[in-house]
Design a protein around this nucleic acid. Sequence first.
DNA 1: CGAACAGGTTTAAGTTTTTAAACCTATCGA
DNA 2: TCGATAGGTTTAAAAACTTAAACCTGTTCG
Lengths: 113, 113
Amino acid sequence: MGKLAMKLFRECLPVFQTLSDPHRQDIVLLLHENGAMPVNELTARLSISRPAVSHHLKLLLQGGFITCEQRGKMRYYSLSLEEPVALLRELLSVVEAECPPQSDSISPMEAKR
Amino acid sequence: MGKLAMKLFRECLPVFQTLSDPHRQDIVLLLHENGAMPVNELTARLSISRPAVSHHLKLLLQGGFITCEQRGKMRYYSLSLEEPVALLRELLSVVEAECPPQSDSISPMEAKR
DNA sequence: CGAACAGGTTTAAGTTTTTAAACCTATCGA
DNA sequence: TCGATAGGTTTAAAAACTTAAACCTGTTCG
């Protein structure tokens, strides 16, 4: 119960960490809007350097947010949001199941216990 | 469309940032398990100092994850996950609507080609 | 082959986050 | 009022994150 919530929170840690940077959010959005792209094309549309983009791509890869497909010289990065989305959905469903949507505020009496 | 996803991603930034720290996750879980608690009781159950707990509580307050109720000397913190959960749920539903669950994922084999 | 191009890696610096010590404020009871 | 308790704030240092310059690898094509 609480154990499950704990487990899910921890499993979602990399998801939260990955999405807690605006540049990485931008990359996700760019790939979503325009489909697969190589690093240089992403760099052209962002305001950070290529090594920085490359670094964020690495984190996104490790977090399972994107996949990479090499075609000749080029490496095309494309979104694969299924896994992180599934993790978040699972966490949300557990939290919503355990926490009554009607506020949980604790009465002062109970607080004494 | 993409604009909406963008807007939701940005609105969820504080949620991601707040939940991307294990200690803050621990505080959320402790409050969920045991109900409202004051700072000292939280500190007793964690491995960080009281000022650190206090700091994380401040961030959780700013993120709308908890509320505070003062009774005499004591300040009881309790969970109020409704708002962040609603934000996450909204983002998830948009992402799931825009991204077909069955995807274009590139298998490692295909990637080589 | 060898020059040009795409892109990953290392490194070093700047920035932000996290933390605990020291300090300050407010409440309660004697 | 005074002392003890609960807890927030400031500060300074350590850790982590982000970034760009310089460098290295691998592919394509003349």
